[in-house]
Design a protein around this nucleic acid. Sequence first.
RNA 1: GCUCCCGUAGCUCAGUUGGAUAGAGCGUUCGCCUCCUAAGCGAAAGGCCGCGCGUUCGAAUCGCGCCGGGAGCACCA
Length: 669
Amino acid sequence: MNLLQLQENLREAVIATARSEFNVELETVASEVPPKIELGDAAFPVAFELAKRIKQQSGEKSNPRQIAERLKSAIEKIEAVERVEVAGAGYLNVFFNRAAFLIESANAAPLPKLNASDDESSPKVCVEHTSVNPNKAAHIGHVRNAVLGDTFIRILRASGKRVEVQYYIDNTGVQVADVVIGFVYLENMSLADIKELNEKLIRENKTFDFYCWDLYARVGQAYQTDENLKAKRGEVLHLIEEGNNPTAELADYVVTRNVECIVATMERFGISYDLLPRESEILHLHFWTRAFEEMQRRDVIKLETSGKNAGCWVMPIDSHSGNDEHEADKILVRSNGTVTYTGKDTAYQMWKLGLLGLDFYYNLFHTYGDGKKIWITTADAIQQDAGVPKFGNNETVYNVIDSRQSYPQEVVKKGVATIFPEKGEAASVHLSYEMVALSPSAAQELGFEISEEDKQKSFIEMSGRKGLGVKADDLLNRLEANALAEVEKRHADLSDEEKRKTAHIIAVGALRYFLLKFTRNTVIIFDFKEALSFEGETGVFCQYSAVRANSIFRKLNEPDSAFKIQDLGLEKIAEIFNAEDGNDIWSMAILAARLEETIVQAANANEPAILAKYTFNLAKAFNLFYHNHKIIHEENEAKRQVLIAVADLTRRNLTAALDCLGIEVPERM
RNA sequence: GCUCCCGUAGCUCAGUUGGAUAGAGCGUUCGCCUCCUAAGCGAAAGGCCGCGCGUUCGAAUCGCGCCGGGAGCACCA
């Protein structure tokens, strides 16, 4: 019986006893982790609630402590429970059988099951993340999005779900038109010139997306003075949307190169995708037309015949009230007949949920080192590649998008739910998060001129248009260089290859943890010192703790690894836990065993930070444990074996927790 | 004007089903490498949990009202 099952049994026992003893029907029972190990392993403040309910039902006043006493005897019957105490005003504190629990945990399958089922009949969910416009390099804000999404995927998989990962490519938007304008009108380049430029950049060890980053910023500046250039925008945009012309071909090359760069950047962070759906196919395969028909059929969209929205198709949103300045209704089709972003997104969402009745065609885009494939959509049925997995048809769709897009996301969710009431709003989840902004000093550190007004602000928003931001690859390079210097200092004997690999693992660990330790709705004000830190509450701290644990096992003698903790016997183990420092050892074991419930909690709350915090606390507890107990050199043989078993449980679960956060553990560091 | 988010230690943040003495990291001060990796460990100092009222046996957490900060409410994406 694992910890989750045990806790469930305890809850059921409480509910059953409340029913039989007090005739009260409890729907849920709150359980908590006691603040101190001396107060037990699980606590139920349920007696207070029961006292209230009894008073409501019979008018009799009852004492919570007495209620708790009666619950106590029922819970004590559960096998894994050692004893139960009534404490304080009426807390029910449960103490587990430590020796039995340790044996059980030592033999348990590695938790969590990090490889989700590939059984095609099991329900699948979709996580869409990254959303970098394919016209420039990714910055740290995009990495927050992707790391959040990727970690959430790992959490879902750990809790047994099948997950499809998508990165939506907005290849027909104005951002793409802007950078195309840069190439064509600022640089006077043809497609052949751009291809040549790409070759040159590769030779110089530079990247195409970084080049576009600067070019895009230059276009933004040029627009401010050059009205003619700005006028070209609509024209170029139209050509790109239409397709089958030289401008569209040039745009496609630029987009594809940028996507390749962005996918490569994300791969450095341990992030991979299954499918890249493109907006051009949403248009060319008439996804919108189909969605529009459904909307008209179900009467969720109406044509405005008068007022300022005359000629537009709009969706009424009743949760928002309008006024003179702002309409409450959301426009999905403009008066000139073109579809807004929200309209296209609604059609795409319908496809993701298997509600559209249309499908894309697919081409192979890229194969990762481990053989995993990324697919990209195409409008051309004839050119479709063989061996395409089944995409779409997801039970639930998670969209990782920043909180500024809450309103359009709400429109998409409500729209889909109105057309398909049987699916409901719960099928569309907006995994929203706050942006990564720059502190004024960080912006200055990047070499930007800061206006007096901005200096007064607590943070400055990053802007691709202005070229203001910390590029993902730049930051990772800097972290790797810092980590490499530390590795050189500590482990000069390692080969250059091993040093570089270690530095990379450390750098990724530092950055992923930095982005995950904040809860989703906290604005991260980027600070170089904090992001580059390898000490304190960092991913590196967690990795270090795991490396230390592993080094114990590397140094253990052969007989130790063959030893099974159950050979020691329950009594001997219990003796160790009952000794003076027994609580200390036990608290390490029980904390490590809480990984599975933490993953469930993080999955239910859609909050990876819960797992990040737990992982840090586990690492911290292990560092203390490591400091207080000499494991290899312990003279009491029984205690030594218990310490080994607890350390082994901890390192296994610490490694699994880190894996779930997308953080690897190096051999040495 | 309307909607949403935030306000907790000097700084940056956890504290999400209401529970026991409100936590962590950084920074400051002071200790700990003859011993499984000091990217570590320990100790000290540091709090009207924005303010007020309410609900409750019990409120940082729930409700209402203020104050302060942010985002959104485009025929942009």
